[in-house]
Design a protein around this nucleic acid. Structure first.
Lengths: 229, 229
DNA sequence: TTACTTAGTGTAAAAAATACACATTATATT
DNA sequence: AATATAATGTGTATTTTTTACACTAAGTAA
């Protein structure tokens, strides 16, 4: 405990837990590793931070390089630093999560060959993950469960226009339990951030539901309220 | 983005935000630095993690070496990693908070000369802090504000036996606002973790209040409930 | 005895959460 | 055209939680 200059004593990395909702299923984004250790294993998208980037900037860049995704707003939630979490040396990793709107257009394309591919995988069919990534994922899920109770972040998962039933599906998948339809609608509408549209769902084979959209202005207000008291 | 071995790319440190309650005042623990940069400035107790320690272990050791305190249960809450947060090089710091029972016995005695001294300082009289420590403190306070609403962590600040008015004082100091006495008592008792003692406050110059103590068994149950759903 | 200071208590009203079931509507099938 | 199907959409009563609000009781000091 004598050094004055801050001596490098660790590698620092970022790992990202991205939730996506597609075809009625809750998925997370994984990469297939192309490097040792854990070559060919599935892992959370993650890599070492860069010299001239903040943690948030690193997170965005890394996600982009490994998956091709950009403009994803991620939130930091925990740092994992067990001594032996990486078999080849000390790596402290800082975990971020985000919820993401899926839907065809955005192809997943790693821009580096550190990953063979990136893919959305149903959370009920998770493979064995590299390193302590299962643990990092578990903590991330716990985090958004708590979060979703207070803030309507589930909309980040949905397309621009959505039905209330879709919202309820997302909640049920994340919380892992069934919710009462009437009470759910009452509550979700009471946040005051949904705008009913003059438009119905199309292409369904039964009664079409009313579409809603998400009012970003009101959401921002709500969000800042939740933070303070 | 080519290395396979995890190359050290940063220093990693821990900073601790410790809240204490004493003489009716909410305080935090600061050290006076004895090293450049920011020699002679006040700072949060913090230092670099060790090679063979987890983050939690590092936090405990560092707190001990800088202040003499041991057996303090701290919780990690955020990682700060702006590129220029340390003037002499990259340092990512991981912040921990805890709430602590003060009261005479435990002397503060740095065991290293990295700190000149350690001292409890009223949160209303904070000096200018080194590095980005003001920011780290602000985030920590925000965190416990949110936390205290759901869990009765305020008891960690109080002596073994305490009055309800003392508990209320702690809440008011942390939340920064006055609370209604009757409603506060109703709510705090409804947590079901306080045991009324057959004993009164002593040495006060007016009516003595009933003492309570904190039931750790019930608290543990409550805590685990809050985490899941 | 009196003055002072803090402890300790209850209720009514409002708001939020919960439990619960059926008619409506669009489509697909015959 | 009639019918079957499957999901949409809606209301109320009950319970629980939160909020607002003011006085008496008890102990100490003068």
């Amino acid at each position: 405990m004598e050094e004055v200059l801050p001596v490098f004593n660790s590698a620092v990395s970022i790992d990202c837990v991205l939730f996506g909702f597609d075809g009625g299923e809750l998925k997370i984004l994984l990469i297939e590793r192309n490097e040792e250790p854990f070559k060919d294993w599935w892992a959370l998208p993650g890599y070492l931070i860069g010299d001239d980037e903040s943690l948030d900037q690193s997170a965005s860049r890394i996600l982009h390089e490994l998956t091709g995704l950009s403009d994803v707003y991620m939130e930091q939630y925990y740092a994992f630093g067990e001594v032996d979490r990486h078999p080849q040396g000390r790596v402290v990793t800082i975990a971020y999560y985000a919820m993401l709107r899926l839907g065809g257009d955005k192809a997943l394309r790693p821009l580096t060959n550190y990953a063979k591919k990136a893919q959305w995988i149903n959370i009920n069919e998770l493979p064995k993950l590299a390193f302590d990534h299962q643990h990092i994922y578990d903590k991330g899920l716990e985090k958004i469960k708590r979060r979703i109770k207070h803030l309507p972040i589930a909309f980040e998962l949905l397309p621009e226009k959505f039905t209330l039933t879709q919202v309820q599906n997302v909640y049920e998948l994340i919380l892992g339990k069934k919710l009462d339809k009437r009470n759910f609608r009452k509550k979700i509408l009471s946040f005051g951030v949904l705008k009913e549209l003059d438009e119905k769902q199309k292409g369904v084979s039964f009664r079409a539901a009313t579409l809603y959209k998400f009012d970003k202005r009101k959401y921002a207000k709500l969000y800042s309220k939740e933070i303070s008291f």
